[in-house]
């Protein structure tokens, strides 16, 4: 997928990266609040669920776009002096992050689709997204747990990813710089 011919991350790649990060950062607390909210807060609960679904669907699409960009343009060359094991670890973490960024929204969508309550999925609160699978209480229970587990893993991995990027930055590498602006 990724070759190492590009000088730095392109602007679309950087925009997609930070947009996805922001959406995930927003989706997690929204998800926690919407599930914790008492059912008596019916309207707010519904709005938050639709917001969470919208964020998830958007992330799913943006990840596909990011993967396409990576495939077309490749990634910047690795920092000289970066140990081989760290490169391998970085590749593995990126692969896991992309997988989780795809699988978590997918599990969320399937959770919504199989939910016994038959609540529709409305992108941006207005555009109906068809549920391609039917209601299934058993699968709903399983998928809900899977969605939460994947989301937890995604958050943990993303935090690790961010901490390591900061650590590299503090060590004088331009890891963060080239994610924020174009590099020569």
């Amino acid at each position: 997928m990724a070759n190492e011919t590009a000088a730095g991350w392109s602007r679309p790649q950087r925009v997609l990266h930070w947009t996805m990060a922001a959406l995930v950062l927003l989706a997690v607390p929204v998800g926690l609040i919407m599930t914790a909210l008492p059912f008596r807060e019916l309207l707010l609960k519904f709005v938050l669920y639709q917001l969470h679904k919208t964020l998830g669907l958007t992330v799913f699409v943006l990840v596909l776009a990011q993967l396409a960009l990576h495939w077309r343009r490749g990634r910047p060359a690795w920092d000289a002096g970066l140990p081989a094991w760290q490169r391998r670890a970085a590749v593995a973490v990126h692969a896991a992050l992309f997988s989780l960024l795809l699988l978590t929204p997918l599990a969320g969508y399937l959770t919504a689709a199989t939910a016994p309550a038959k609540i529709p999925t409305l992108f941006l609160g207005v555009i109906p997204v068809p549920h391609l699978v039917g209601t299934n209480p058993v699968w709903f229970g399983v998928l809900r747990e899977v969605h939460v587990a994947l989301a937890t893993l995604l958050v943990l991995l993303a935090c690790g990813h961010a901490l390591i990027a900061v650590q590299h930055h503090l060590k004088g590498r331009n890891t963060l710089i080239r994610m924020l602006r174009a590099c020569e």
Binding site: F39, R40, L42, A115, P116, A117, K118, T135
Partner: peptide, 15 residues
């Protein structure tokens, strides 16, 4: 009875 227990509980409530 409702699809979700929370929904049924809401209907039983004083509201």
């Amino acid at each position: 009875a409702m699809p979700l227990q929370d929904q049924a509980d809401l209907l039983r409530s004083d509201a």
